[in-house]
Nucleic acid binder design. Sequence first.
DNA 1: TTTGATACGGCTGAATTTAGCCGTACTTGA
DNA 2: TCAAGTACGGCTAAATTCAGCCGTATCAAA
Lengths: 121, 121
Amino acid sequence: MYQKKLPVELECGLHLFMEVMNGKWKISLIWCIYNGINRPGELQRRIPKASRRLLDTQLSQLVSHGIIAKTVFDQKPPKVTYELTPLGQTLIPVIESTARWGEMHRNELEQLIQTPDPLLR
Amino acid sequence: MYQKKLPVELECGLHLFMEVMNGKWKISLIWCIYNGINRPGELQRRIPKASRRLLDTQLSQLVSHGIIAKTVFDQKPPKVTYELTPLGQTLIPVIESTARWGEMHRNELEQLIQTPDPLLR
DNA sequence: TTTGATACGGCTGAATTTAGCCGTACTTGA
DNA sequence: TCAAGTACGGCTAAATTCAGCCGTATCAAA
């Protein structure tokens, strides 16, 4: 894994939140796990646009940040599940309120946020 | 400015929020401007760890995302101020609730979030 | 025996953000 | 005239994240 070289900014609580949520698919992962989709293969099928590799990476970051817990069943074929930790559960209402803000202002925002011009690709 | 080449994920409201808040110093900038520190030079002095260059860049992103507004006074020497737009104001309570979450769990999080090892630098 | 499902990890290069250098122009005050 | 303050922008390299390739292993069913 990549080892950070620059200091992380943690003075403010919002930075802590951002540090945890930062990662293209983490939000989707947390939401899926919260809704009971908790096995790696299932998650991969739910989020097909992300590569398996990257989902694995982000899952393990969430584990190391204490948001989700990983359980490995000692059986053949192997089985793995993820669950929200108590800390992860406290995140749900915050995510909901933040998502509500986004939805509320979706119209304004979509026009303002720069999207890559499909003609250039 | 850099032109995005990969599509932006905007399905979920939280992604909209992240898209706007994403940038190392944007949170600090919004918070300063909200508290009346609204001239480029002042902001620079309040956030000395960030380069002037980067603050400029992130300020202009916030402007283009409609969160803050820039006013240029036509005088010599030039004078510029930033203010929160109505959309930017709606962000404040969301930021507060998110920051509250971070503060509440600061102890747990600080131990879990990977910090660069000072011995390696 | 081959195929498909389970799960995991190394590696490379593209895309993107951040850091930090340089220089422009104007005005006021020492 | 010279320094210091105002604001702005080009450019390069470092740091970081993302995309996608390859390969490992086990087991069940076709």
